[in-house]
Structure formats: C-alpha cells, structure tokens
Design a protein around this nucleic acid. Structure first.
Lengths: 123, 123
DNA sequence: CATGACAGTACCCTTTTGTGTACTACCTAC
DNA sequence: GTAGGTAGTACACAAAAGGGTACTGTCATG
C-alpha cells in the first residue's frame, strides 16, 4: 500500500507548482499577507483602517501587499470617486474560500505559539 | 455585538506576536518549510531522501530550513552513530499537531491554484 | 494659513532568501 | 583505483523581501 503522499499532486520534484502546500504559501506567505486576509475576514476595510490594525506596517509595504493580493485575485479594491478619496478592500469569493485555512493558522498559532510564550513568561 | 476579531488575540497592533496567523506563518512560511513538513507527515525521512523529494532545493538551503525547524521544535533530528552516518528527520509532537494546518494549506492549494492552472492550460 | 486625514508614490537601504560551485571524510561497489 | 552514496560545510553571489524617510494633492478643521 503506497504512502498517501505519493499518489497525487506530489510536492517538489522538478515542478514547483505541483504542490498545493507550496502553492498556497506562495500566495499567503510572507510577513503580512496572512494577517491582512484575517482582518478582511471581518469585512471590508479602508487603507488607513488596515494600516492601524496592522500597527507596525509601513504604507509602502501595505500598498505592496495589497497590490499583490489583488493581482492573484484574493481581494478586491474598490475606489469611490469621492472627495476625499475612499478606497475599500474586501475579500473576493476566492479570498473567502481561504477562511478555513486562515482560521486553522490562527487557531494553531494561538494554541502553540502564544500559549507557549505565555507559559515561558510565567514559568 | 462586537466583531469576533476584536475580542481576543488581536492581529497586529504594536506587538507582532499577538496574532496567531502571523505567529504560525513565521514558523512554516517561506518557500520550503511547509513542503518539508508535509513530506514528514508521511513518516521519518533521511536528508538525501528529503532532498530528492523536494527536487529543486540546494543542500545549503535544506540544511538551513531543517535547522530552523528543529530550533523551533517542529521536527526532531536523530543521528545514528553508524558508518556511513545516518540522520533521520521526523515530526515532533508539536510538529504532528500542525497536520490539520498543513492539510488545509494543501487542500486549498490543490483546489484553487493547481486546478485553476489546469483550467487555464486547457482553456 | 497651519494641521491633519486620506491613499498612496519615490528613493535608498539592510536583511533574508535562494543559487552555484567546490570541498570534507568515510564507506561500498565495480 | 574510480565512482558513487552519506550528510553535510564554506564561500561568493544574485534576487527578493522588508524597512525608513520623505513627498504628493485634495479636502476639512481650527
């Protein structure tokens, strides 16, 4: 009986896009993308609202990450022709489909990293 | 009724380690770590066996990624005092606990990236 | 008229990631 | 003796990710 990892969509092996794990991490990996998507799970947000939630991010990085997320179709950028200008970011349908993934990342991190650090601090 | 995102372990906001999403991506993000962990879900593997499965990775990078995963306690490195030397890598208990996260990443990637590319290629 | 919010852009810099090649030292098979 | 497998290390280098500061132009507030 073969290993379940060998029968379909093998990871690695010449073609880097053969692996779903790598493909997903390509899109949501990096320091900010996952967190941005997490915040957008709660609903549409404006540029500066996102900026305040992320705290430490620079405008340059936020712009860059948002453009990249838009380019791969995970978020939608809506510009309102108002004065002052208003731009809202929201998840696309495909972005919404990431919800279980994002929540899994968050749940594990809360359990295994934040809790561990709290124990060390108390320890 | 408050947004579920505001009540606990907020993402961003001054302390970067406050967010489970970011904490998890810090550990498994990057080009290789997720895929390495995925392969180790199938059982222990030796250095060169991993190298062959990943295909495109250099020895230098593989060593580096494995050391980092070991340092954060996700994998265990076992050296057998044999000739020729044998080194096996396996998931720690904490690494095993990542299984649902890794599988979620893979499932989404297989569905949303690989399938999309296949359609584009056929379309 | 100065300040601040809005949504960014431009430029320069450092750090991290990743690539390529060569090398170690021991053993087995040919 | 030569080639190949074992698990790496060492060095130089290119590319990507991330960061800091300053600046734009329009509008509202004071």
């Amino acid at each position: 009986m073969p290993n379940p990892h060998t029968d379909s969509s093998a990871c690695g092996l010449s073609d880097p896009r053969q692996c779903g794990v790598e493909a997903t991490l390509d899109l949501i990996g990096g320091k900010w993308k996952g967190v941005i998507l997490y915040h957008l799970l709660g609903g549409r947000l404006r540029f500066n609202a996102l900026s305040r939630r992320l705290g430490a991010i620079t405008q340059r990085m936020l712009t860059k990450q948002l453009r990249e997320l838009e380019q791969v179709g995970l978020i939608v950028r809506t510009v309102y022709a108002e004065v002052p200008p208003r731009v809202e970011y929201s998840l696309s349908a495909r972005g919404q489909s990431l919800k279980p993934v994002i929540l899994a990342l968050k749940a594990w991190g809360d359990e295994n990293v934040l809790a561990a650090e709290a124990m060390q601090a108390a320890g």
